[in-house]
């Protein structure tokens, strides 16, 4: 019985020794081999390509900010196209990245920035005229017909009066077509 136990013990000890040796070998191998990062590199490259693609797919970006510019949600499935963009937030009116007018209390343009009849935002009119002239000369040099089209990204909470003033000003400068930016609630 004692002999059998000893041989069993021996076998067990051998197994343990073999396992230890295996572990030592693995640890040695790990120390000698550098970290394999090729698969990680593959994954990161795919993510990078995807992000770069989504970054460049939109013709125009609308940076949304809490309490300033949150676009309304809509069922519309129409996509946007390149044109003059006017952002109407609760604090300012921005045309092609340049602020042209302030918005007071999230609803009014200061009266000194309006025309005498109260419909036209003077600085917005000047900026739109300048951009229209540039676009017209660029279109004529390219041999294309210029279609005055404006893209309006307004905050969902601003009163209609403010958007109407922007539309009135743009139509005064002969912008004929308008598209309102919305956040799509369904794909397409």
């Amino acid at each position: 019985m004692a002999d059998r136990m000893t041989s069993e013990e021996k076998a067990r000890l051998e197994r343990i020794e073999a396992k230890k040796a295996e572990r030592r070998e693995a640890a040695k191998k790990f120390r000698n081999d550098p970290l394999k990062i090729t698969s990680l590199m593959d994954a990161l490259t795919i993510i990078l390509i995807f992000l770069l693609k989504s970054y460049g797919s939109d013709p125009m970006q609308v940076p949304q900010k809490k309490n300033e510019l949150i676009l309304p949600k809509s069922d519309s499935m129409s996509n946007m196209a390149e044109c003059v963009d006017i952002q109407v937030s609760r604090t300012s009116i921005v045309v092609k990245g340049k602020a042209v007018s302030k918005v007071v209390d999230g609803k009014n343009v200061p009266s000194d920035e309006l025309s005498t009849d109260g419909h036209i935002i003077v600085k917005l009119k000047e900026r739109l005229e300048e951009l229209k002239k540039k676009a017209e000369s660029a279109a004529s040099s390219a041999g294309k017909k210029f279609v005055p089209e404006a893209f309006i990204a307004a905050d969902q909470k601003v009163p209609w009066k403010l958007v109407a003033q922007v539309l009135y000003t743009a139509s005064y400068v002969k912008y004929k077509k308008f598209s309102f930016a919305i956040v799509k609630t369904r794909g397409g």
Binding site: V62, L167, Y172, F178, S179, F180, I182
Partner: peptide
Amino acid sequence: QIGVILVDWQS
């Protein structure tokens, strides 16, 4: 996804 709604302004 940002989309658009086309409108006309009646001056």
